[in-house]
C-alpha cells in the first residue's frame, strides 16, 4: 500500500531542472521508460547471466540520472514504495518448492532464491526508472504526453481534474488535521474512527460540491465536454532517438546476455 506518497503533494515528485532529459518531449519519455521496464521484465529469471544484465541496467539508469542531475538521495527516496514487496521477496526462498540448498545451515529453495532475487532486482530497476521519469517531468507534462499517446480523451480530462485538484483536496485534509489536533485530538486507537470517519465524509462532500462548482464555472466559460489543446510540437527522429537510447541500450544488454551467456 502506498506509503511513499504520504509526505507531499503531487508536485513534490518533480525536481525542476533544465537538463537534456528534462527537455525531452514527455510522450517520448513515457514510451522510453515503458519500453525499458518491458526489457527488464523480459530478462529470463533463471539465466546465469541475469545478475550481470541487472547490473548493466542499473548502470544505464545511473547514467541517465547523472545527465538529468537527479541526486542519488531522490532516487533512494523513490525506492521507499517497494518495502512491502521486499518482505515478500525475502520470503520466497523459504516457501518455494524445488531442489534445496543449505545456506548457513538454513535450507532454502534454489528456484525461490533466484525468483526472490530477480523480483527484487526487476522491481527496483523499474521503480528507479519511473522515479527518474517523475523527477524530470512535471505532472502536467506527463498528462500532455499521455494525451499524445492517445489515451481516451475522457480519461485524460479526468486525470487533468484529478491532478489539478489533488493538492487542493490534500490541503483541505491537512487543514482539517491541524484543526483537529489543535483541539487536542490524538488518534491512538479504534475509537478515533468516530472522529476521522466524519472528517473523511465531509472531505467527500466538499470534494463533490467543489466538482459541481467547477463544472458550473466551466460551463459558464463555454466548456463543451472537451478541453481545447494548443498545437502540438513536432517531434523529429533525433528526439525520439535520444529518448529511446535508454531502452535500446537495455535491449542490447539483454541481447548480449542471451547470445554470450
Amino acid at each position: 500500500m502506498g506509503a511513499g506518497h504520504a509526505h507531499g503533494g503531487l508536485a513534490a515528485a518533480y525536481v525542476a531542472g533544465n537538463s537534456p532529459v528534462h527537455r525531452l518531449e514527455p510522450h517520448t519519455k513515457l514510451v522510453a521508460v515503458l519500453a525499458f521496464a518491458l526489457v527488464v521484465v523480459l530478462t529470463p529469471v533463471h539465466a546465469g547471466w541475469a545478475p550481470l544484465a541487472y547490473a548493466g541496467f542499473l548502470a544505464l539508469l545511473l547514467g541517465v540520472a547523472a545527465v538529468a542531475r537527479v541526486r542519488l538521495g531522490r532516487l533512494l527516496r523513490g525506492l521507499a514504495v517497494e518495502v512491502p514487496f521486499v518482505l515478500f521477496a525475502l520470503l520466497l526462498p523459504f516457501v518455494s518448492r524445488g531442489p534445496r540448498i543449505d545456506v548457513l545451515g538454513v535450507s532454502l529453495s534454489q528456484s525461490g532464491l533466484a525468483a526472490g532475487g530477480s523480483i527484487l532486482a526487476k522491481a527496483t530497476l523499474s521503480v528507479l526508472a519511473a522515479t527518474l521519469l517523475a523527477a524530470t517531468t512535471d505532472p502536467r507534462a506527463l498528462l500532455r504526453g499521455l494525451e499524445r499517446l492517445r489515451l481516451p480523451s475522457v480519461l485524460v480530462q479526468i486525470l487533468t481534474f484529478m491532478i489539478r485538484y489533488a493538492d487542493v483536496i490534500g490541503g483541505e485534509l491537512r487543514r482539517m488535521k491541524v484543526a483537529r489536533e489543535s483541539r487536542g485530538f490524538r488518534g491512538r486507537h479504534l475509537g478515533a474512527l468516530k472522529v476521522l470517519g466524519p472528517a473523511a465524509g465531509s472531505l467527500f462532500i466538499r470534494s463533490y460540491e467543489r466538482g459541481e462548482r467547477v463544472h458550473l464555472a466551466m460551463l459558464s466559460r463555454g466548456y463543451t465536454g472537451r478541453l481545447p489543446t494548443g498545437p502540438v510540437a513536432v517531434v523529429g527522429g533525433r528526439a525520439w532517438a535520444t529518448a529511446l537510447s535508454l531502452p535500446l541500450a537495455a535491449a542490447a544488454v539483454l541481447a548480449a546476455g542471451s547470445l554470450l551467456g
Binding site: 479526468i158 481534474f161 489533488a166 485534509l173 479504534l190 466538482g211
Partner: peptide, 21 residues
C-alpha cells in the same frame, strides 16, 4: 463525467493518505 470523476479521484487519492489508527 470529467469534473465529477476527477474530483472524486482526487478525494480517493487524498483519503488514502489519511492514516486511521
Amino acid at each position: 463525467t470529467a469534473p465529477m470523476a476527477g474530483l472524486t479521484a482526487a478525494f480517493v487519492f487524498a483519503v488514502q493518505m489519511m492514516n486511521f489508527p
